[in-house]
């Protein structure tokens, strides 16, 4: 699926396919943590990202997100803003207070349109906002761009 979308660039001609290495590729695919309480959305995000061969992990709520993030130290976190228990914002604030997560790229998914939410999230350290509903294709492109920038 969607094979034509991936652009190979000099210096980073990498494509991860579920742990299998291709020529000139790094043995370890980037870890991506998907945090959303809705399974159907986690699946959608997974579908948007799995073509790129990332090592995908899912967390169902705020606490699990924190736990997995600390255990896996992912290269990218896709975080839903509204989750039961700890909200995405609280998770992010918590993570950003730890040195190892200071630079980790974070994509915040939000359905909220309320004024001030965006400002609060930006203050907490969000790199990119993706408002629901989102285009899986664009999310995939964004994830790739952020990972590439972080790896450089």
């Amino acid at each position: 699926m969607r094979l034509g979308r991936l652009k190979l660039r000099p210096g980073r001609p990498i494509r991860w396919t579920n742990g299998q290495t291709t020529e000139g590729a790094s043995a370890v695919p980037p870890k991506v943590l998907i945090c959303d309480n809705e399974e159907i959305l986690r699946t959608l995000v997974r579908a948007a990202l799995e073509e790129d061969g990332y090592d995908l992990h899912e967390a169902r709520d705020g606490d699990e997100s924190l736990e997995l993030a600390r255990r896996l130290e992912p290269d990218l976190i896709v975080l839903d803003m509204m989750m039961p228990g700890r909200t995405g914002l609280e998770v992010l604030t918590e993570l950003r207070s730890e040195r190892r997560f200071a630079e980790t790229p974070v994509i915040m998914l939000t359905a909220r349109v309320q004024a001030g939410d965006r400002a609060a999230a930006e203050k907490a350290g969000v790199d990119h906002f993706v408002s629901k509903p989102f285009s899986p294709v664009e999310l995939g492109a964004l994830a790739e761009r952020l990972l590439a920038a972080a790896a450089r």
């Binding site: 699926m1 159907i40 579908a47 509903p133 899986p136």
Partner: peptide, 9 residues
């Protein structure tokens, strides 16, 4: 989000 996301895929 789900409807439109999967539809797009």
């Amino acid at each position: 989000t789900s409807i439109r996301g999967y539809l797009e895929l």
